[in-house]
Structures are given as structure tokens and as C-alpha cells.
């Protein structure tokens, strides 16, 4: 399933979608960035409540397919701009991290 399809299916808000056709092969949830940096699988939809600018670097270095900021956490314009610059798909949702992961698992 592509990031664009996942966005539509889960009703995610698009903050920045430079690579809509990237394939999502798995999901991952985590907020401790060093932990995520050591563990997140490539091509995952990464669900987090972290919304500071460092999520973009982590997403880029781990090659995740998309970052989904969960639970209505606010994402600053600087973060969205950085994601656009680095080609990172950035989505948001009011749903909980748990709900999003369940929905991702049912979709892919």
C-alpha cells in the first residue's frame, strides 16, 4: 500500500507529502528518538507523538516511508518545512498511536 492510499484509508491529515507513491511495508511506534533511531524498520509508517524537528532527521536516516504524528500533537511550521526539504512524508491524526497501528496492520 502506498503512503497516499494509507492516508486516504485512515483519514490522515496531510502536512507534507513529497513522496506519495512510497510503499508502506510495515508499521512502527516509538517516541524515544534514540530508540527509534536504533530500531525503526525501513519503509515503515512510523507513529509517534513527538513533533519536534528532530523527527525529520530520524525519519530520513531510517528511511521510513512516512511519519504519522498521532493523538493530535501539534506540528510546527518549521518541522513541516524541514520535512518538505528532506523529502519526508509527514501526516497527522487525532487517533491514538494504538488505534493507528491497528489500522495500519489491517491495511497493509
Amino acid at each position: 500500500m502506498t503512503v497516499q492510499e494509507l492516508k486516504e484509508k485512515l483519514g490522515l491529515r496531510e502536512l507534507c507529502l513529497p513522496e506519495p507513491d512510497r510503499e508502506v511495508v510495515t508499521g512502527y511506534a516509538g517516541d524515544l528518538l534514540s530508540w527509534v533511531m536504533g530500531r525503526a524498520p525501513a519503509d515503515a509508517a512510523w507513529v509517534t507523538i513527538m513533533s519536534n524537528v528532530n523527527i525529520v532527521a530520524v525519519a530520513m536516516l531510517r528511511d521510513v516511508a512516512a511519519v504519522i504524528v498521532a493523538e493530535g500533537a501539534e506540528v510546527g511550521e518549521d518541522v513541516i518545512a524541514r520535512a518538505a526539504e528532506q523529502g519526508i512524508n509527514l501526516l497527522a491524526s487525532d487517533k491514538s498511536a494504538y488505534t493507528l497501528c491497528v489500522e495500519i496492520a489491517r491495511s497493509i
Binding site: D31, L32, L33, S34, W35, V36, M37, G38, M50, N52, N54, I55
Partner: peptide
């Protein structure tokens, strides 16, 4: 509060 300081930095460096 930024999501760092999990004590994983040096272990990750060694691991990778």
C-alpha cells in the same frame, strides 16, 4: 523532553 537521553546513543553506535 525532545525524545533524546534514552541512554541509547553510545550503545547504538557500537551496535551499528
Amino acid at each position: 523532553s525532545l525524545g533524546f537521553g534514552a541512554g541509547m546513543g553510545l550503545p547504538n553506535m557500537k551496535r551499528y
